[in-house]
Amino acid sequence: MSLIEANKSNFEENIKSGLVLVDFNADWCGPCQIFAPVLEELSKEIPEKILSVNIDDSPEIAEKYSVSSIPCLVIFRDGEEIDRSVGALPKKKVQKLLEKHKR
């Protein structure tokens, strides 16, 4: 897999089934720039989808999920939010977070 740029035209479609990680970010956010390459790398190693949502390009998605501090990683299962974490994380921590929800 690789990181998928998501916006309102493909977001719902992409979170519909299975475990999906969504990274809410923006160009002006420092920690987001540090987090992005971590997710890019991870996306090549795991079967789960990772979406990247720029909140300035897709404010309606950020609003819908009450994202008010970024970077914000939201985990969806079959379209439902099951967990979230605010702030940039090292790869190991993202993997741990994901492990928690695998079954």
């Binding site: 002006w28 420092g30 920690p31 540090i34 987090f35 702030g87 940039a88 994380l89 090292p90």
Partner: peptide, 14 residues
């Protein structure tokens, strides 16, 4: 050892 991301306070300064 780093609790958050590398860089510290300065990463929020443009």
């Amino acid at each position: 050892f780093e609790e958050k991301t590398f860089g510290g306070q300065i990463i929020n300064t443009h």
